[in-house]
């Protein structure tokens, strides 16, 4: 049996060697960049000492993890991280799919190119620049909203950077604005691949535009949506550091609504440079992410097995 597998493998290599060669480089990259550093996870359980090195340092059990749970803010940072990401996933998907469908309806090739480019620009903008754009809107004394919107309406100016209330909305809007262009292109690429004959058949059957969308387009997108969502779920315990640190300008009074696991760890360890604790935080995040991906995939498998990742 083993021999036949091996034989099949060598035959495949002989036959498809250019493809394997192309894949080899990618695999090598994955191995060096994603697998080799995994050994460093051992640091999460050690009291790191540079003179003893990664392997020589003493183990200290789960002590490095304690700081993540020993704070009164543990609940707040976990809630913020997960809730924001959940909202980002749901709204982001709805928004990008809508945009992709609308893009697909645009007939002029030139206009299509233009819209694609324009929606992609925010994705390319550095988050630091975004934070200054937001500041131009939100600054208390000369921001656009206070001087051009609220003042003409006779409203008092709002000190945005010390008022936590509106920030969940602001952060969600910025995240949508920044991210939708990129994911809508992925959905759009899938849409282009849907066989036109389905639409023609639907039209002949007398389907309206809306019925075409719900019966042809969305089922065609289902696979991509599930894959993209599963990938996002895997990172639900990570937050976009720039969005939660740079955009609110690291403003203290906003921490209740902007503090996430990543910003908490960054602020807490900035004074300590404790490698063990930083690794512990990363390890904890990826472990929970992994568990959630497994769970989500199991659910998908139950509902529609052909769409599960594995």
């Amino acid at each position: 049996m083993e021999k036949t597998v091996w034989q099949r493998f060598t035959r495949a290599i002989r036959k498809f060697w250019p493809l394997y060669l192309m894949a080899a480089l990618g695999l090598l990259y994955l191995f060096i960049n994603n697998y080799m550093p995994m050994a460093g996870l051992v640091l999460a359980f050690k009291q790191y000492n540079a003179r003893k090195g990664i392997w020589g340092s003493d183990f200290n059990g789960l002590k490095n993890f304690e700081f993540l749970f020993k704070t009164r803010d543990a609940w707040i940072i976990t809630r913020n991280t997960i809730a924001y990401n959940a909202v980002f996933i749901v709204l982001g998907t709805i928004f990008s799919v809508t945009v992709a469908i609308l893009l697909n309806e645009v007939r002029s090739a030139k206009a299509k190119k233009l819209y694609q480019t324009v929606t992609l620009i925010p994705y390319m903008v550095s988050i630091v620049v975004v934070s200054y754009l937001a500041n131009a809107l939100l600054a208390t004394d000369n921001g656009f909203i206070n001087t051009q919107v609220l003042a003409p309406l006779g409203q008092d100016p709002v000190a945005w950077y010390t008022t936590p209330g509106p920030w969940p909305v602001i952060l969600v809007l910025i995240n949508l604005w920044k991210g939708f262009g990129y994911s809508s292109i992925i959905y759009f690429a899938t849409l282009v691949g849907i066989n036109r004959e389905y639409y023609e058949a639907a039209v002949i059957d007398g389907a309206s535009w809306w019925q075409q969308v719900t019966h042809v387009t969305l089922p065609g997108l289902k696979n991509t949506i599930i894959t993209m969502t599963l990938l996002s779920v895997g990172r639900i315990f990570y937050s976009d550091f720039g969005l939660f640190y740079q955009v609110p300008m690291n403003s203290g009074p906003l921490y209740d609504v902007t503090n996430t696991i990543d910003t908490y760890v960054y602020r807490g360890l900035m004074q300590n440079n404790n490698i063990g604790m930083a690794s512990a935080a990363g390890f904890y995040q990826s472990l929970v992410g992994f568990a959630l991906v497994l769970a989500a995939n199991t659910i998908v498998k139950k509902i529609s097995p052909e769409n599960a990742l594995y």
Binding site: F67, K70, D73, Y255, N259, Y264, R267, G268, N274, M277
Partner: peptide, 10 residues
């Protein structure tokens, strides 16, 4: 007191 230190820094 590193855990308390991290929490209080925040």
């Amino acid at each position: 007191v590193i855990n308390e230190y991290t929490a209080c820094t925040n």
